[in-house]
Simulated assay, not measured.
Amino acid sequence: MLSHFFKKVNTRVLAIALAGFSAFLNLYATQSLLPLFSQVFHASKVEVSLTVSATTIAVGLAAPLVGILADVLGRKDVIGAAIFGLSIPTFLTATAPDLDALIGWRFVQGLFIAVIFSVTIAYISEEWADVGVGSAISAYITGNIVGGVLGRFLCGVVADRFSWRLAFVILGCLNLVCVFVVLAWLPRSRNFVRQKNLIASVRAFGMHLRNPRLLAAYAVGFNVLFANVSTFTYVSFYLAAPPFYLGTTALGAIFFVYLLGAVVTPIVGKWLDLIGYRLVLTIAIAAAGVGVMITLVPKLWLVIIGLALGSSGIFVCQSAAKSYVGAVAQEGRSSATGLYVCCFYIGGSLGAILPGFVWSLGGWSACVGLIVLVQLLTGGIALVYWR
């Protein structure tokens, strides 16, 4: 029966989705725990938000170097080693005696996550170069979505009923399972062209920085993750306060709105290949802006609808931007992707921190104003510079 299933299913696509799943399982896992961390560690909103931004900062800093090295080292083995390596700081996070140690281990997690991101996207751009790169990227994004939902939800439920430390032990075990499945199902690269040396890869890096179309894609990536992380980091504080009073389990469950994105993104992947990246991104960013504004209505069911619409729009934007980078970069794709990931996660890092200062001016309403402003800028950049 299992052999019949594997004949029917494209295990290569599943392996790509699972690589994305393993990274996002950990990346934002602490978002549902932020109000709890504020109580446990007697820390401010900005301080506990560093458990999110430390990871994204590490991803942003490591991604360019990872891209350069991967253009020399290869693809499949690097992805497998990175997923295994990620499990180690995940287990160690459970041992953190204080907030500083927790933030430190979260930073180390981000270093391994950067490898998974950069090399997997480069693998997709090469192995699906002839046809269907949009659909393959969408499968990867779907894995991101499911992993992100499960990571947050598991942390919320396990912390509520047992301990937040146990939650990270469970995440580490899931990472180990992912290693074996990805190595079993992911074929070796057929189209990878190894850079002869690091100098050649560094030259490709410089070439990308002189490409205005890639620079526009990097700016879009920065803004997209800024908006997403801002929304889902600070909405936890909004929903933990009156009139909602949600606990960690309920806050973890809120992230199930991401599953709508898991349904929408593969469908939109086909449209990326048909009608183009710019039009799809423009429609998606408009939907995301409307969604985040709906959350201002103090009714839980409307907040959930707004978050579902906003997150789906953001995931489509991610899929469009990542596909666009792969299409525009004709060589040195790992380094091109590494630069994209760098900008993307620097945006996410600032998205976890800056709204904390804006919150003091006007709470969630002020955060929404900042998010919508960034989304308008994103749409404008794509309309003017994407060709």
Results as ranks from 00 to 15, higher is better:
residue 380 G to Q: 12
residue 225 L to M: 15
residue 17 A to F: 07
residue 101 A to E: 12
residue 149 V to N: 09
residue 187 P to E: 09
residue 386 W to Y: 13
residue 122 A to R: 07
residue 354 L to K: 03
residue 238 Y to L: 03
residue 301 W to N: 15
residue 297 V to K: 05
residue 376 L to C: 13
residue 76 K to W: 10
residue 167 A to V: 04
residue 83 I to C: 12
residue 104 G to E: 04
residue 220 V to C: 14
residue 204 A to C: 14
residue 242 P to A: 15
residue 373 L to A: 15
residue 314 I to E: 01
residue 329 A to D: 04
residue 51 T to L: 07
residue 104 G to M: 08
residue 310 G to N: 06
residue 204 A to S: 15
residue 338 G to M: 06
residue 102 L to V: 07
residue 80 G to M: 09
residue 51 T to M: 05
residue 71 D to A: 04
residue 202 V to K: 03
residue 166 L to F: 15
residue 344 F to L: 13
residue 213 R to C: 01
residue 344 F to H: 13
residue 234 Y to Q: 01
residue 355 P to W: 09
residue 360 S to I: 11
residue 32 S to R: 06
residue 171 L to T: 03
residue 268 V to T: 10
residue 384 V to R: 15
residue 336 A to K: 07
residue 82 A to M: 10
residue 382 A to G: 13
residue 335 S to E: 06
residue 184 A to K: 14
residue 370 L to Y: 04
residue 98 D to E: 05
residue 276 G to H: 04
residue 207 M to Y: 11
residue 130 D to Y: 08
residue 62 A to Q: 04
residue 225 L to T: 07
residue 246 L to F: 02
residue 273 D to C: 06
residue 63 A to H: 08
residue 325 V to A: 05
residue 322 K to I: 14
residue 4 H to I: 11
residue 201 S to A: 14
residue 17 A to V: 11
residue 364 W to G: 02
residue 134 G to Q: 09
residue 293 M to C: 13
residue 113 I to E: 05
residue 192 F to W: 09
residue 149 V to E: 01
residue 114 A to S: 12
residue 61 L to F: 12
residue 10 N to E: 12
residue 336 A to D: 08
residue 105 W to L: 11
residue 262 A to C: 07
residue 194 R to S: 15
residue 100 D to G: 03
residue 271 W to D: 05
residue 306 G to C: 04
residue 289 G to I: 11
residue 342 C to V: 13
residue 342 C to Q: 12
residue 233 T to W: 08
residue 198 L to N: 10
residue 239 L to H: 02
residue 343 C to K: 00
residue 152 R to T: 03
residue 376 L to D: 03
residue 255 F to H: 05
residue 66 V to M: 10
residue 160 D to L: 09
residue 43 A to L: 06
residue 6 F to D: 11
residue 183 L to Q: 15
residue 146 V to N: 05
residue 56 T to S: 11
residue 385 Y to M: 13
residue 30 T to P: 08
residue 193 V to L: 15
residue 246 L to R: 12
residue 88 I to T: 14
residue 22 S to D: 12
residue 117 F to T: 09
residue 384 V to E: 10
residue 271 W to H: 11
residue 361 L to N: 07
residue 65 L to N: 06
residue 308 A to T: 10
residue 221 G to K: 08
residue 106 R to M: 05
residue 176 L to A: 06
residue 282 T to D: 03
residue 129 A to F: 11
residue 102 L to W: 01
residue 26 N to D: 09
residue 190 R to P: 07
residue 330 Q to K: 15
residue 368 V to I: 14
residue 323 S to Y: 06
residue 137 I to N: 12
residue 245 Y to W: 05
residue 238 Y to R: 12
residue 309 L to C: 10
residue 246 L to N: 08
residue 133 V to L: 11
residue 237 F to R: 00
residue 124 I to T: 08
residue 78 V to R: 02
residue 249 T to A: 12
residue 2 L to V: 07
residue 74 G to L: 05
residue 284 A to P: 00
residue 229 V to R: 02
residue 138 S to G: 06
residue 219 A to T: 14
residue 132 G to F: 08
residue 200 A to K: 12
residue 140 Y to P: 02
residue 129 A to Y: 10
residue 347 G to P: 00
residue 204 A to P: 00
residue 294 I to S: 00
residue 119 V to M: 04
residue 198 L to P: 06
residue 309 L to D: 02
residue 319 S to W: 00
residue 53 S to P: 03
residue 374 V to Y: 04
residue 292 V to N: 05
residue 364 W to K: 06
residue 17 A to M: 14
residue 386 W to H: 03
residue 5 F to D: 12
residue 194 R to D: 07
residue 82 A to P: 00
residue 259 L to H: 09
residue 187 P to L: 10
residue 317 C to P: 01
